[in-house]
Design a protein around this nucleic acid. Structure first.
Lengths: 218, 218
DNA sequence: AAAAAAGTTTAGACATGTCTAAAAATTAAG
DNA sequence: CTTAATTTTTAGACATGTCTAAACTTTTTT
């Protein structure tokens, strides 16, 4: 049986793997989960014993096939629940993360299958993040982070890669949501901040914001 | 903060209180939860410290106002989730208990409120059990267990008081569900078993089954 | 390549919740 | 009303998951 804490570690390892490649470091996991490196070390040994990760002391960790499958399943559940919360219970996209963090650990394959059907098998969650299918396949998009676009490019916001309320509230204030048309006007070399046009209004945003916006160019 | 284990103890104490009156015994709780009397003793001390129960060694336990309020809230959540699972995810009424046991511990008042609204503020769950309102008030019914009816009485099944798959599956096999019209034909003094008429078919059921069927007489 | 800094692991402790076995209190029986 | 049976509590142990402090690797700097 896999515990709640173990699921959270696997999910954290997968999240980090998706952004950086190579082995995942103890500190990175500690940062993601909000715990100490010592606790992570302890847990990695346990996950190793359960063949959920491949781990060499001081050398970082990676998921086994089995570990990857569990982690993917947790992310699938998280995103399906977020979809339910926003689509059916009228939660705002910034309010669903904490509740989904709890719901993702409910154990029932039947429940997930039926929820998926109920929601019409969505491919993306309310933040535009891909929802892994039952078989673990993750829908792909040909999107690029806004900060990688070149000046003058037009595109549409397809997703955000940060699920935190302050960030999402700020986007809402900027009138940015999934589907918003954006034109990149100017990139400032000094701080990598950028000017954009949204529905005929000029806005200026930092690189930290831009890098979390996934754009599909027209 | 109240933990998952504590919630389960409070719920168990409330369940037992509803069926028998007076103080609740350690053994009864152990039986309900499926643990040992020793574990119950330990936990009662902790619940006492948190002012969730009133407890005198060897003398049984009862819920404080605060404890009762938590326990009622857990039951509210359990029954709302069961309603969702049956009404919206097309689960059978015998399949929802275990999943609802997990869902009832999700912490978010907002979630419960919105789920309640989504379901149209149901007063009874798929088993006919009353769903406590947000303020803790429990809808009442003037129903009696089938085994307490007298011969010749007609009535309608309004609820069942046992949420276990083998029992519910058996009812389904007998063609009994919420709303079924039943006539009590004969009570056998020897074993308290009874003969009933359901949609013009005669059936014979044990007292153990009859006592868990709540009937509203015509 | 040695010293310093950064990252990681171990050791020991603690909190939660569980268990078994033994002791104590209560209730029932003769 | 004293013994026996039942119920309940305590004592001590264990598993999980966390933490701090100290020790140990690895990487970076000089």
């Amino acid at each position: 049986m896999i515990t709640l804490a173990e699921e959270n570690y696997l999910k954290a390892i997968l999240s980090i793997s998706l952004n950086f490649d190579g082995k995942v470091s103890t500190n990175a996991i500690a940062g993601e989960i909000g715990t100490t490196a010592a606790s992570v070390s302890d847990m990695l040994k346990k996950l190793q014993d359960k063949k959920l990760v491949k781990y060499k002391k001081y050398k970082g960790v990676s998921l086994t096939k089995k570990g990857n499958s569990f982690a993917t399943s947790v992310i699938r559940k998280h995103r399906l629940w977020e979809t339910f919360l926003v689509n059916n219970l009228n939660f705002d996209w910034g309010e669903v993360h904490d509740v989904a963090e709890q719901l993702e650990h409910i154990k029932s394959e039947e429940l997930v299958d039926r929820l998926d059907t109920f929601l019409d098998c969505p491919k993306f969650d309310p933040h535009g993040e891909p929802i892994p299918a039952k078989d673990g396949k993750i829908p792909t998009t040909n999107t690029i982070p806004l900060n990688k676009l070149s000046e003058g490019t037009n595109g549409k916001v397809m997703g955000v890669t940060l699920d935190e309320k302050p960030f999402l509230d700020y986007l809402t204030k900027l009138n940015i949501s999934i589907g918003t048309e954006i034109k990149l006007l100017e990139k400032i070399p000094f701080d990598q901040s950028i000017s954009i046009k949204i529905v005929n209004t000029k806005q200026h945003i930092s690189n930290d914001v831009a890098k979390h916006l996934l754009i599909k160019t027209n």
